[in-house]
Nucleic acid binder design. Structure first.
Lengths: 274, 274
DNA sequence: AAGTGGTCTAGACCACCCC
DNA sequence: GGGTGGTCTAGACCACTTA
């Protein structure tokens, strides 16, 4: 093998399968893991290929993978790269390793738990419910002193405020109140947020959140949330406040979601240690 | 450099510093990163060394690290190993990289956020408060059908039940109700849990939890929790239910913590993506 | 153009598991 | 002892940033 990175479109550097290799990871005929024009890193492609086969049931829970060194030749990648992919799948709860024994597909229950807090949309998808929104407010206003501090902008700067009732199958579940610095995403005021995702707009505008700092607490329902949530003031609600930052450390989104206590439950799983 | 792993106690393979190297990571005189008898992986040692210097202020927030290739020679490790350490520190919120520019110490605020849900003990430490416990119940009982299912044991098997009021500076904050399969940790009934940590006992018994699946919700306070929490029934409480599993997939701990809504707030930060 | 992080490789040794 | 994952290395090319 040549050293360094091969020209991504010239060399086919592994034999590989006709749909199924042994009991291991299978690849489609005529097409290897490596899509010559795929800009994604190899380890991402490898991870996606394996995860897809797990999701589709080609690799059932508990199945042992071929040995790393075998997988390497099958996929045509180095062991370091393969292990990076597998490590990624461990973090996603898809695979588990056992020193001296091998790699195993994780139990289905492990895969159903998000490794960070499950978002409203993810919950809906997992449960097969249809998420919808009713917009209460969508307007540009001037930043208060507190908001200016949070976003790191001048007080009085334009801030877009979006307040929505989030529903599952038409049943009101939560009130989402989000704020974005207006000049980060031009044209926000003209978007129909009963359908659109605020997060998608941020990503499209090049302000993708990468870190979310969250606090979660239980409170009594505030009077202004009682009507949209069909609750009495004082009834238990779960509030999650998040501050999201992009890769350049800009605060791009500040949101507070207020869930009906009896209609929503946050889920997460995490690895303990260090 | 020789190939493979050098004998960990024979070769000193890097020059290195007299307390401070340029503006970069400093190492103590007479002692390099590599403790010959340290069984920890090199990348863990490297990560700990850097994080220590960040915590102690030797590397202030925003400071740029020396280039990877320079750090490698300073620390006497390969670039792959160094990058593994740095990647680990990214996940812990200690460092950030900028393609083409360099590595930077993350803002202090980022480091104060736990990457998984902050535990009661961690909260106490962060705030400088003293965590204490009052034991309500500590007894061995027979597993109910539900408990048997959760733990994967036979109904009627011995289960240790521990119920405590958790306090900060003497103020009641939460009621913690935990269950452990009794034969996993012999002698549990004789431990004084007003001081001891149940988690520590599990670790000592070789049943260290590695994964915790958690659900979080807001409820009205149950009658039996009203007195220990000094609340009225129906007042908002935050409940977190956790199922912890060890490396061999055994369920080792099932717990429910009920926090006073007005006295506790969960904190977490996580990386979005994929 | 030089410097820096991001990706990738081939090959080595170590530690654990099981026969 | 053979197989398997875990760690580590030296060196290469690519992509972004800065001057």
């Amino acid at each position: 093998m040549d050293n360094g990175i091969r020209p991504r479109g010239s060399t086919m550097r592994h034999k590989l399968g006709t749909g199924k290799d042994m009991d291991g990871v299978s690849t489609s005929p005529q097409r290897s893991l490596i899509a010559p024009d795929n800009p994604e890193p190899l380890w991402v492609q490898a991870a996606e290929l394996i995860e897809r086969q797990v999701r589709e049931g080609v690799l059932p829970a508990g199945r042992r993978l071929p040995a790393e060194r075998d997988l390497c030749t099958q996929l045509g990648i180095s062991r370091v790269t393969l292990r990076r992919a597998l490590q990624h799948l461990v973090e996603r709860g898809v695979m588990r390793s056992s020193h001296g024994r091998g790699w195993y597909v994780a139990a289905r229950s492990d895969r159903e738990w998000p490794n960070s807090l499950e978002s409203f949309t993810e919950t809906a998808r997992r449960k097969g419910l249809v998420p919808t929104s009713r917009v209460l407010r969508a307007e540009v206003k001037h930043a208060s002193l507190d908001e200016a501090d949070e976003f790191g902008v001048a007080a009085g700067a334009d801030v877009f405020l979006l307040e929505r009732v989030r529903m599952l199958d038409g049943v009101p579940i939560a009130v989402d109140s989000s704020r974005v610095v207006a000049n980060l995403v031009p044209g926000l005021a003209s978007v129909d947020f009963s359908r659109a995702s605020l997060l998608d707009e941020l990503v499209a505008a090049g302000a993708e959140p990468v870190v979310a700092e969250s606090t979660i607490e239980a409170r009594g329902c505030a009077p202004e949330h009682a009507e949209p949530l069909q609750l009495e003031p004082g009834d238990p609600v779960l509030t999650m406040s998040q501050t999201m930052t992009d890769a350049t450390d800009r605060v791009v989104l500040v949101s507070t979601i207020t869930y009906r206590g009896d209609r929503y439950r946050l889920r997460t799983s995490f690895v303990r240690g260090s």
